[in-house]
Design a protein around this nucleic acid. Structure first.
Length: 272
DNA sequence: ATGGTGGCACCGCCA
């Protein structure tokens, strides 16, 4: 049975709840992982999400900033939330699906919102960049402590706020000193991926020679014409699950929807 | 060459 997982930085789930409905109506993903929900848990729009066909919702939110959630057509067996850097930030949630979800073998989904890191790419001058690097270091250590079992089926998705490849940004040269594409971040993201033995599912379908973006700034006069994007959103899978990947889509057109998020949804389908 | 937009909270912060 195919299982489609979407990841989307929604930039306020309450403001853009009808766009979540649009994604659900158009693509019917089994699972929708959201970041930047900017919503306290007791104000999460559960009724609307139920109306869209997602009765199972795992949330880790806070007032005003950050926040992640997993919406699902199928029930969860477990829900967990990992804190990083002792900041109290809501930046991670994980669920497992099992027999109750109609799966032959369990599947774990990690949903991350890695810190953006501010403007100045210097950890001495900019505490937000320091925090981003520290967050990555902690996540690497956490991966090393929790290695994947052989054959384990897991995905790690989310807004990782780093565009690692030269083709993940509109200009490698011009962005080398811009937070999201600096060598120190890219190196850490690579170590995070290696520590978890994660496979980059997006680049398994779209070769690294091709430009690929999931985010376009709000500040461009015409985002599509200038097309100065970055691939900040990612879908990583364990080797066992990656071997079952069937399709991958970046919904570029969602950047042109009414009152859009600055990120677009990424959808991955597995034969789960 | 600089500033451009957007959301939320609350008149600044974060992206």
């Amino acid at each position: 049975m195919p299982l489609t997982i979407a990841t989307w930085n929604i930039n306020s789930v309450r403001l853009r709840i009808e766009l979540v409905g649009k994604l659900a109506a158009l693509h019917q993903p089994d699972i929708i992982c959201l970041q930047e929900t900017k919503c306290p848990d007791d104000r999460f729009p559960l009724k609307d999400i139920g109306r869209f066909g997602y009765p199972h919702v795992a949330i880790n939110g806070q007032k005003g900033y950050h926040g992640v959630a997993i919406l699902s057509k199928r029930p969860f067996e477990t829900i967990s939330r990992q804190g990083f850097c002792d900041m109290g930030d809501a930046r991670h949630i994980a669920v497992t699906l099992g027999a109750g979800a109609g799966l032959a073998a369990p599947l774990t989904i990690h949903n991350f919102y890695i810190p953006a890191g501010g403007d100045i790419p210097d950890p001495e001058q900019n505490p937000k960049f320091r925090h981003k690097l520290d967050f990555l270091d902690e996540a690497i250590a956490w991966e090393q402590l929790h290695p994947l079992a052989p054959g384990e089926r897991s995905v790690l998705v989310g807004d990782l706020n780093i565009a690692p490849l030269e083709t993940d940004v509109w200009s490698h040269k011009q962005l080398l000193d811009v937070v999201s594409h600096t060598p120190v971040e890219v190196e850490r993201l690579g170590r995070l991926q290696a520590a978890g033995n994660w496979v980059d599912v997006m680049r398994g379908f779209i070769p690294p020679s091709e430009k690929l973006y999931t985010w376009w700034s709000y500040r461009a006069a015409d985002w599509a014409a200038s097309d100065r994007g970055r691939r900040l959103d990612h879908v990583w899978a364990s080797p066992a699950l990656a071997a079952t990947a069937r399709s991958l889509a970046v919904l570029r057109e969602a950047r042109g929807w009414e009152r859009p998020s600055d990120h677009v949804p990424v959808l991955a389908t597995f034969e789960a």
